[in-house]
Amino acid sequence: MADFNPSLVTLCCENSAFLVAEEENLPGVTPVKIPCGGQVEHYHILNAFDQGADGVMVLACLKENCKHFWGNDRAEKKVNYVKGMLENIGINAERLAYSPVAANNEYKYGELVKEMYDKLKEMGPMEGKVKK
């Protein structure tokens, strides 16, 4: 497993995390812009896994700092819901994570992504990946 390079998708709120993600260009990480944490649908998270992601992170604004009042709370709820769905179909729920990131906190973004990346490296490739 030493040469396994996981691919990570970060769904980033355009008001906070995406501003950071644009600056930090990390290998193996694909930042995807979303208008607000509240826009995250379970369909999109599952679609990301389907398209070959080994892990997905949803990054929204800090608590009580959402421009749209409760978008980040909604994102957290949705992520917990999808975690249950992943476990039901036999995928490690640790592959999905939610974290709040502020727009000026590049360090935290880097740390979070690095931590997740190392975790994914340990876990190995996605269990549910269909080999063609």
Binding site: P27, T30, V32, N47, A48, Q51, G52
Partner: peptide, 19 residues
């Protein structure tokens, strides 16, 4: 449907996964 964030648009973004 949300212009800019429809299923097709998101799919296009996810196509970039893993470089």
């Amino acid at each position: 449907s949300f212009p800019g964030y429809t299923d097709e648009d998101m799919q296009k973004e996810f196509k970039k996964i893993g470089g």
